[in-house]
């Protein structure tokens, strides 16, 4: 499938912009010419296989990793010239929540609050309450379950009332109820005019939560588009015909057929939405009559697997 890049024209409210961002680790090109934009109120899914460059990108945004070339703008200013003023407007969990095991949840947030400055104890209580952790706030972090650690991580991102929230696998380790809570929380945060950058492997969660998605593979963005647009690219039609070889020959020359494969007695083709009638007509004109024509519901997982070539374990 071809690269899919589609961004809104509206340049207002861009909180994060990367321009030709590159990072090399020795000979390894971890991130190649990355161009991303993230706006207020947007939940932006940042997807990719393991080692694709997601965490490296997040590290560069947060100033933990020095880019090899390219630039990062945060809230309209170059990151390198206004790192701290930008960072104080960002809340982030990087890869996994990380806190001091001997401190309680409360004390961990207290340490963060002391470092950042200007954050009251009321605010600590408020963010802990928001993630339903206030009643366990005095327990040592080392004794927290994975789900509680994730909640504390999310609470820490909210501590400074951020305009940009970066969440890396926020539902990792959560039980179904906890996952749902976080899934419900993310759109609410976005509704408060915050921008959310969500890195996740749970594509179903991303599909339910994000309104825009970028897919990165081997350091290169291979798709960056509104979720609906991206899902439409993954539309598939399942056709059952008697003369399968002949049908395949007819279909594969059509310019708008993006993929074609055999699955048992069916031909499965990638097509734009609502193409069923056109396909039926073309085949009928050639004297081929489909006994079944089924529109496959596209999922982000299908699109992701097609784009990243992970479907066959590649």
């Amino acid at each position: 499938m071809a690269e899919i890049i589609s961004r809104p024209d509206n340049q207002d409210n861009v909180v994060l912009r990367t321009v030709n961002l590159c990072k090399n680790f020795g000979k390894l090109e971890a991130v190649k010419n990355l161009n991303l934009e993230l706006r207020r109120g947007e939940v932006f899914g940042f997807l990719g296989p393991n080692g694709a460059g997601k965490s490296t990108t997040v590290g560069m945004i947060l100033g933990l990793i020095q880019p090899t070339s390219g630039s990062i703008e945060l809230f309209g200013k170059k990151q390198e010239s206004s790192r701290w003023s930008a960072l104080r407007r960002i809340g982030a969990i990087i890869e996994e929540p990380a806190f001091y095991p001997y401190l309680s949840g409360w004390d961990n947030l207290n340490v963060l609050a002391k470092s950042i400055g200007g954050i009251s104890e009321n605010r600590i209580a408020e963010v802990l309450e928001r993630v339903n952790l206030l009643d366990r706030a005095k327990d040592a972090y080392g004794r927290y379950s994975m789900g509680m650690k994730q909640r504390l991580g999310i609470a820490s991102t909210l501590l400074r009332d951020p305009e940009l929230i970066i969440l890396d696998e926020p539902t990792n380790g959560l039980d179904p109820a906890g996952t749902r809570e976080i899934r419900d929380l993310i759109p609410r945060l976005a509704h408060e005019r915050r921008a959310i950058l969500l890195c996740s492997h749970l594509l179903h969660e991303v599909e339910l939560t994000c309104n825009r998605v970028a897919i990165i593979k081997q350091g290169t963005v291979i798709a960056d588009a509104p979720l609906k647009e991206l899902l439409s690219q993954g539309n598939q039609l399942q056709i059952r015909v008697d003369r399968m070889e002949e049908t395949a020959e007819i279909l594969k020359v059509l310019p708008w057929v993006t993929s074609l494969k055999k699955e048992g007695d069916y031909l499965v083709i990638g097509v734009p939405p609502n193409s069923g009638s056109s396909i039926n007509r073309i085949l009928a004109e050639k004297g081929i009559f489909a006994s079944e024509l089924i529109q496959r519901t596209s999922s982000l997982e299908n699109v992701f697997l097609q784009l990243t070539g992970e479907e066959n374990g590649n």
Binding site: W84, I94, P97, A98, Y100, S156
Partner: peptide, 14 residues
């Protein structure tokens, strides 16, 4: 060891 370095570096001015 505790991976807290990233959490706390981004909470410090420099």
């Amino acid at each position: 060891n505790w991976r807290t370095i990233r959490t706390f570096i981004v909470s410090c001015e420099s």
